[in-house]
Design a protein around this nucleic acid. Structure first.
Lengths: 145, 145
DNA sequence: AAAACTGTAACATTTTTAATTACATATAAA
DNA sequence: TTTATATGTAATTAAAAATGTTACAGTTTT
């Protein structure tokens, strides 16, 4: 986790891609409980990482899991009602292009304000990204496969 | 550097913010050669890092440097003619929200195609970001300080 | 009770980013 | 012409972040 003056931001990582991959698979088999082992197999990833992302999806009531034998995870919501923006928001707080770290010089008029001004810029970028991702449903995405 | 199936991507780092900070300062003092020591002071950053970003700016003919005593760097182009998109392109190849790594399973229809489909999505996101950054000049940004 | 799952914390490894050191070269000015 | 102050850049180290693994407790089906 990387700290700027104003908010906590997680930098871009694989979370969005992993989560979208999981949801695409769940969406392909909407009536089955898919195991983290199976999901991990499609991504060539460790099942624990998959379960971590699933924990996040559960927290947001997008999926439910069944424990025990024959357990696994399935979608709670039809894929036409899940937008990529929901996935984006649930895996990243925001996109940023970086901030000045280690406290820029407060005696410099630029250093003093740089992070606030970057923040405003990134906010408007995130609005644009959200607009676009809002127009794409998981079903739209899934249909490309 | 992080590799996906299709292109080399650098993940988001501090380059955009550092470069924009440098250019904002140069833009405030358009007739002076500012030293990397001075610039680094405003950012609380190591001068060598500043010089690395300046090397990149020089490569793109945005600034020029003078070596030796009283040397430093100044803008070559009026700040009204520098867009934030130029800075974005010069410091990042693209924004991405991550790819499936370690070769997803080629026997899975989703795994096989996930990275191409993510790529298409990210391309369209980058178009939107570029559009927006194109509408903001370095002068616009500088005027906020 | 056994087998096959999920859930999570703790830890280890790998990768990426940032910082530092070292030193060669250039220029201005005393 | 020597000294001080810059840039330029490669090489190395350190720090941070992301990713992967292990271990094990809990759950459910057969």
């Amino acid at each position: 986790m990387y700290i700027c003056n104003i908010f906590y931001y997680s930098m871009l990582s694989g979370k969005f891609a992993i989560t979208l991959h999981i949801l695409t698979l769940l969406s392909k088999f909407p009536d089955e409980y898919l195991s983290s082992e199976f999901l991990a197999g499609s991504m060539n990833l460790h099942p624990v990482l998959v379960r971590k992302e699933i924990a996040n999806l559960k927290k947001h009531n997008i999926v439910e899991s069944k424990e025990g034998k024959n357990g696994g995870t399935k979608l709670l919501i039809p894929s036409k009602d899940i937008t990529l923006d929901m996935i984006f928001k649930l895996t990243f707080e925001k996109v940023s292009l970086g901030f000045s770290k280690k406290d820029p010089n407060p005696d410099c008029p630029v250093g003093k304000q740089i992070n606030q001004n970057l923040q405003l810029l990134y906010d408007s970028i995130n609005d644009k990204i959200s607009n676009q991702l809002n127009s794409i449903s998981l079903l739209d995405f899934e249909n490309k496969f």
